[in-house]
Every structure is written in structure tokens, then in C-alpha cells.
Nucleic acid binder design. Structure first.
Length: 773
DNA sequence: CGCGAGGGC
């Protein structure tokens, strides 16, 4: 404790932040160059101009300079758009906190939302047009209010209003909030529908749902006839499912909204027209509008506290080190308020940052930053606040993540080290300062014409829209500050928005789904069309799985596969399991593989202890049977032990209970689907692993590799040398042939989820494929 | 002797 701040100086040079350049550039930040049709205001013109707040002078000796204030996001440059104004204070978009408000207070809050002032004009505009693009800033209230306005004003007719969301939590919590505003319980007037969970009745008029859910509904109701309005929220995120939905909405409208069908006869569906509302953040409205034949764009002002933005004056090569130094600049000089640091990932090969910790440190981002900050925080003068460091990433155990939401003791400053989860999925209360490294990890699927392909996971620069979103996280509860560890120039050269997911992921699953409603992806009117090679690669995979025939027609196998909510190769394994009497076992393995979290968590400094402990569940045939063993042991423990003992057991064995709990839910769902398609979910092979491996083989036939004379593995389809992933229990094994769940390209091409399979399996399978074709 | 964004059915 005798070592004081100078300690900081010794090792840390301050990061120099630079003043933003003039307001013209800030207009650019908004990313707009609209030449939109009719400049017209729906309500009174907005008086508010660029908020030029003089930010608080930073104390102390840090060389930071002060800059123009900055509101995120800003409506500048939108004069040519229709605009609905609003006033008021404090609103949160999707994470609602207390529900102690009385009905009256709720109604009052509704009226105070920025969007409320323009209600009549908004309803009128939406009533007039088949498609409306609603540009809404954070905090405008559009997602909660627009559906209610349409319902209350009779715009929805007799049908339901669907509001789609990319994330489950958003759908359920929105339904919760809007139900309260309607003075009803969830599932009555307002309901929701997400995987594993739905609450709605025949009387439900507003349904919040995930985009994946409505895409699946397309398979049973291709015209979405239950709905009179579909509101696509967060459309700018351009998830695969949102893009598929938007393409279908366009064709559905052609059928439902025209008075004459293509044959010139009266169209029966015209009695049931469909209204579409696209809700998006500000950057991509024009594109949505063009896609829907220049649909009306309406702008809704939001409400967000001002966030002052600093850019570093030089680019930071070692952004983790820069993040640490910036944190201490904030901690020493700035008033209380929690700090949120955005990093690309938990781990990243990097520099050794603290010489004293050279041996203790791995080469990781979140983990090493945690240690570095702890190291220096201990050496601060006693009058400084304590520092509580909290890592936050989705794959981390749920328990650890909850600590992030708890408020820290009064003399403690929370410092949250987060990945992209904190950008959209979760909102952390108390954050006043954001430190943005400008980096994120992004998965990109590289399709191969041999069928299949592999994922790459690379650290990249974020987009402008992402940078704005991150900065906005500092202004949720009051004025905030965002420190960007990149120059203003670097910001300007960032891409505006991310590539749509449809251009970056495997299309196998979507193409199969589309086949079920008689559509071919290459003919679909999509906002962005995927590369034709990516489509061929997926078709080849589907053919290999027996889901389509040589003429690319859906087979009965394909139709049955599509009824499972799993990746096609796993669906195929389930079907195969019924012929090998091991559906029970395969369902368990597939459930765990389909879970969003990992079964085995890796903590770098305990990695060896973890793998030792797991050895108990290890099966010589590989990772798939190991999963089965682990699940079985957990079930055994669950029979006799309490919830907390179960938890303890998982912790002791370095098992992620989150994965098991979700896996069990998925398993239940898969059992239901099995019953529907006539598979016996209880057929079991007992302890014999052969049938299990064979069944997996039918699904993973494209994901296989043979051992080469030199000891490496080479793909059976494709030409790449693949290495067994270090996390696999097969990592040091040399077997004649392997199957694997997926390939990930990082430094090399790694096969994850590996099991040994007899070479002879492939000969038999090839013969089978020939016969099918 | 490496690996390691975030979502969804």
C-alpha cells in the first residue's frame, strides 16, 4: 500500500485522447447521405440541433483534452425525412427494471415516451401504406408502443400483430412489459412465442416472438395468414432469419394485398391484407425502403443521455494494454461510475503486459486484463476507490455472470470486461464510462464446393454502427463518457454496418427449410443474395445427407429432417438412430451439441485440473460418447442430490451446468418431434457404442477425415489437412478415420467434437448414396 | 502444446 500512483507512471504511460474534429464530421458519423423524396414533417419540426455540450474538464495530470459533446445516436442530417418529435426524460428500451408502477403511472409513462406525441400521425401513415420503415432511436418507445397504437386504433383489423426480435430475452421481456401497459397478464391480449416457451391464447392480439420462430411458422403457414401486421424489429442486425422473413413478407404481400391473382381472377386472400413495418436503427433505412419499392421512411426521435466521445490521438497497437491504462486514467481522475470495457474475446494471443506477472500470465485478453488491473489497483493510494473486476461473456457460467448485475459496495468501482454480449444482448446497470478497443471477433463461414466448409473466427475492426452502440452503453442512466482506443480517422474508415449474416454463414439449414415451402434460395427475392457457390455447397451437403435428390428435389428424409430444430447433420443422425436402435443415446448427444453453451468450460490456469477431472467421463471412441457419459453421470447425480449439490458436482468436475440444463430442455423438445414423425425416442443400445457412432456417421459423413501416413488427418471430402482440436479427448490419438462436429479455422484448421469411426463405414455409405441417387 | 464472438429453431 505504500506504493502509490507513481507506480502507475512507472509502467503506464497515459493514453492520449484527442478532441473530435468539427461538427461536419459528426454528421458523417451518422453515416447518412440521404436524398430522400419528400421532405415533410409529421409533427412540428425538431428544433434541437447538434448538442454542443462542453464536457467536464478532466482533473489531474492526464493529458486528455476536452471535446465536443456527443449524443448517441443523433438525428442530424435527417431533415429530409419525416420526423416525429417527442420530449421527455428517462426511458429504457428493453430491459425493464422495477415493476412496482401502478397502472396509472404506467399510462403516464406511456404518454411521456418520445413516440407518443406523434401517435396520430404515425398511425395514419402506417394505415396508408403496406410497408413502413420506422427509423427509431434508442429510447423512443417504438417497440412497445407501435403495436399498441395499431391495436387500439383498429389498424390491425381482426388479425394478430407479430413483433419479431432477434433474441429470446427481448421477446419475453417486451411481452411482459406491454401486457402490464395493457393491464392484462402475459398471454392474454399480449403474448410471446420463443423456443421452449410460449404464452398466448386465441384472444392474443400482439405476439412478440423470435425471428426464428416466425420463420419456422412459415413452414406450416406460408402466407402467415394469422397475422394482419408483421413488425420486424432490429432489422438492421440482418440476422439470417430476419432476412429470410423479410424476403417472404414481400412475396406474401404480393399474394395477400393485390386485388387480382396472377390469373386475373378475384383473389380470395385480398380480404386478409398484410401490413409490414420494418424497424431499424438509423444506418440502413434507405436500403430497406428501396427493397420494398421505396417504402415510406418515418423517423422517430429517441431519448438517450449525452455521451462524450474521445478518440485516442494515436492508434493503439496493444489495445489490451491501452485499455488498462485508460481504465486507470478514468479511475484516478473521474467521478464514481462503473466502467465497461469492450474486448474481442476471452482469449487472444498477445503481448505480455506486466513484466512482474510474466510467468503468472497467459496470453489472454479478458483474463490478463483482469490480472493486470488487479495488480495495479492494489497499489493505488488508500483514498482511491476499490476496484471490482468482473469478466462477462456468454459462454461463462451463469453464476459468474450474475455478479455483473449486482451493485458494488459504495466505495467500489465496478470494471466490467465484456465481449459483444454487452453490446446488444444485455444491459449492465451503473455504467458511466465505456472503453472501446474497437475490436470484435467475427465468425465467417467459408463454404467449400466439396460440400461443407469451415468457420473462421478472426479478430476484426468493429463497424461504425457497432462503435455507436458501444458508446451508447455509457448513456443509459445519465451523462456518460466513451473512450475509443482508436483514432477518429480509424473510426471514419470503419465500415458502416456489418455484413448480413446470410453472406457469412452456412446455408444448409435455411435451404432445407425453404425447400419445405417450395422455395429455392437462389430464386428468392432477398435483400442480399448469397454467393451461388455457397448455395451449391449447401445443396451438395443436403444431397449427401439424403435430404434432396439429384434433381435437388426434397426427399421424404429431407422433410422429416426439417421438422427437427437442429442442424441438418444432427437431424440426419437422429433419423439414422431409429434404424440402429439408439435414438435415446443420439438424442442426448444431439441435445448437448445443440446447446448454446459448451459442456466443458476451459479456464486457462486450471486447464490441467479440468481435464484430469473430466477423464472420468472419457470414452475411448471419442467426444460424442464422452458427452453421453457425462450426461448420464449428471442424471445419476440428479436422482439423489439436491440442486445445490448438483451445482457443486458440476463445479468440481469443471462441467457447465448451463449446458446440461439447456440440453435437457432441447432433449424434451426433440422427443416430442420424434413422436410426431413416428420415431421411438426410447429405442436404446445400452452400453454398446457402435450403433451410436454409425448413426452419427450418417449425419457427419461430410465431416470426416482419414489418417495419413505422416500422422496428419486429411478430409475425405475436400483437400484440407485438419488437426484435432486441443479441447477434444482425441487430441493425441491416431485412429484410421474420424468424424467431427465442425471445423474451425484459427491458426490452423481444427476439428472439434471428434470420434473414431471404422474406415469401412464410408465404403458402405458411399454405396448407399449411389443407390439413393 | 495447441484452442477460446454473439445469436436462433
Amino acid at each position: 500500500m505504500t506504493m502509490s500512483v507513481p507506480q502507475k507512471r512507472k509502467h503506464m504511460l497515459s493514453v492520449d485522447f484527442k478532441q473530435r474534429s468539427g461538427s461536419s464530421k459528426r454528421h458523417k458519423e451518422h453515416g447518412h447521405s440521404h436524398q430522400h423524396k419528400k421532405p415533410r414533417y409529421v409533427d412540428a419540426p425538431d428544433e434541437e440541433q447538434s448538442p454542443r455540450k462542453s464536457a467536464t474538464e478532466l482533473n489531474g495530470t492526464t493529458p486528455q483534452k476536452l471535446v465536443n459533446g456527443y449524443k448517441v445516436p443523433k438525428p442530424h442530417g435527417h431533415n429530409n425525412l419525416n420526423r416525429i418529435n417527442g420530449v421527455g426524460e428517462s426511458s429504457r428500451s428493453k430491459n425493464f427494471r422495477s415493476n412496482s408502477s401502478t397502472d396509472l403511472q404506467l399510462q403516464e409513462q406511456r404518454k411521456q415516451l418520445p413516440i407518443a406525441k406523434g401517435r396520430d400521425a404515425l398511425v395514419a401513415e402506417i394505415g396508408k401504406h403496406d410497408v413502413t420503415v420506422l427509423l427509431g432511436e434508442t429510447g423512443s418507445g417504438k417497440t412497445t408502443q407501435v403495436p399498441q397504437y395499431l391495436l387500439e386504433n383498429g389498424v390491425a383489423g381482426k388479425g394478430m400483430i407479430a413483433v419479431t426480435q432477434p433474441r429470446r430475452v427481448a421477446a419475453t421481456s417486451l411481452a411482459d412489459r406491454v401486457s402490464k401497459e395493457q393491464g392484462a397478464s402475459v398471454g392474454d391480449i399480449v403474448g410471446y412465442s420463443v423456443r421452449f416457451d410460449e404464452k398466448y391464447t386465441s384472444g392474443t392480439r400482439i405476439k412478440y416472438m423470435t425471428d426464428g420462430m416466425i420463420v419456422r411458422e412459415l413452414m406450416s403457414d406460408p402466407l402467415l395468414s394469422k397475422y394482419s401486421v408483421v413488425i420486424v424489429d432490429e432489422a438492421h442486425e440482418r440476422t439470417l432469419r430476419t432476412d429470410l422473413l423479410i424476403a417472404n413478407l414481400k412475396t406474401i404481400q404480393k399474394k395477400r394485398n393485390s386485388t387480382l391473382d396472377p390469373k386475373g381472377k378475384g383473389n380470395a386472400d385480398k380480404m386478409n391484407p398484410l401490413k409490414v413495418i420494418i424497424m431499424s436503427a438509423t444506418l440502413d433505412a434507405e436500403k430497406f425502403s428501396k427493397f420494398f419499392h421505396n417504402a415510406k421512411i418515418i423517423y422517430v426521435k429517441g431519448r438517450q443521455h449525452p455521451v462524450t466521445i474521445y478518440h485516442s490521438s494515436e492508434s493503439q497497437v496493444d489495445y489490451v494494454d491501452a485499455a488498462m491504462r485508460t481504465f486507470f486514467q478514468v479511475h484516478v481522475d473521474q467521478p464514481p461510475g462503473d466502467v465497461l470495457i469492450f474486448l474481442p474475446g476471452e482469449y487472444e494471443p498477445h503481448f505480455i503486459r506486466v513484466p512482474e506477472l510474466k510467468n503468472a500470465l497467459g496470453q489472454e485478453d479478458i483474463e490478463s486484463l483482469e490480472k493486470s488491473i488487479t495488480f495495479f489497483a492494489k497499489r493505488l493510494p488508500a483514498d482511491k476507490m476499490d476496484v471490482l473486476i468482473l469478466p462477462m461473456y456468454a459462454s461463462q457460467s451463469a453464476h459468474k455472470n450474475t455478479k455483473v448485475f449486482e451493485s458494488a459496495p459504495s466505495n467500489t468501482r465496478k470494471c466490467i470486461l465484456a465481449t459483444n454480449v454487452a453490446e446488444t444482448s444485455i444491459t449492465i446497470p451503473g455504467v458511466k464510462y465505456v472503453i472501446d478497443t474497437g475490436k470484435c471477433k467475427e465468425k465467417q463461414y467459408l463454404a467449400r464446393d466439396s460440400g461443407g466448409g469451415f468457420d473462421t473466427l478472426l479478430t476484426r475492426d468493429i463497424t461504425k454502427s457497432s462503435a455507436m452502440q458501444r458508446a451508447g452503453r455509457a448513456g443509459r442512466e445519465g451523462k456518460g463518457v466513451c473512450f475509443r482506443l482508436y483514432t477518429e480517422q480509424a473510426f471514419e474508415s470503419m465500415k458502416r454496418t456489418a455484413e448480413p449474416e446470410i453472406l457469412r454463414c452456412s446455408l444448409t439449414s435455411s435451404i432445407l427449410q425453404l425447400k419445405c415451402i417450395g422455395q429455392n434460395m437462389e430464386e428468392l427475392d432477398l435483400m442480399d443474395k448469397p454467393d451461388i457457390d455457397a448455395i451449391y455447397s449447401a445443396l451438395k451437403t443436403l444431397w449427401l445427407l439424403g435430404a434432396i435428390d439429384k434433381e435437388q428435389k426434397l426427399t421424404s428424409t429431407g422433410r422429416r429432417m426439417a421438422s427437427f430444430p437442429t442442424e441438418p447433420h444432427l437431424s440426419r443422425s437422429i433419423l439414422a438412430s431409429s434404424e440402429h436402435n439408439c435414438t435415446k443415446e443420439i438424442l442426448t448427444i444431439v441435445s448437448i451439441l445443440s446447446s448454446s453453451s459448451k459442456l466443458f468450460l476451459d479456464i486457462s490456469d486450471q486447464r490441467e485440473a479440468a481435464s484430469d477431472s473430466r477423464r472420468k467421463f472419457r470414452h475411448p471412441s471419442g467426444d460424442h460418447m464422452t458427452i453421453l457419459n457425462t450426461f448420464r453421470s449428471y442424471e445419476e447425480v440428479s436422482k439423489s442430490e439436491s440442486k445445490s449439490q448438483r451445482k457443486e458436482w458440476c463445479k468440481k468436475h469443471f462441467i457447465n451446468e448451463k449446458c446440461l440444463i439447456e440440453g435437457k430442455k432441447i432433449r424434451e423438445q426433440l422427443i416430442d418431434v420424434c413422436k410426431k414423425v413416428g420415431l421411438d425416442p426410447n429405442s436404446s443400445c445400452g452400453e454398446n457404442e457402435d450403433p451410436v457412432i454409425k448413426s452419427l456417421g450418417y449425419g457427419l459423413v461430410g465431416n470426416s477425415a482419414f489418417l495419413q501416413p505422416d500422422g496428419s488427418y486429411k478430409q475425405t471430402m475436400g483437400h484440407s489437412i485438419v488437426k484435432i482440436h486441443p479441447g477434444s479427448c482425441m487430441v493425441n490419438e491416431k485412429v484410421p478415420a474420424i468424424i467431427y462436429d465442425e471445423l474451425v479455422y484459427t491458426n490452423q484448421i481444427y476439428a472439434r467434437g471428434v470420434s473414431a469411426i471404422p474406415r469401412s463405414f464410408f465404403l458402405k455409405h458411399a454405396a448407399l448414396s449411389q443407390r439413393q441417387a
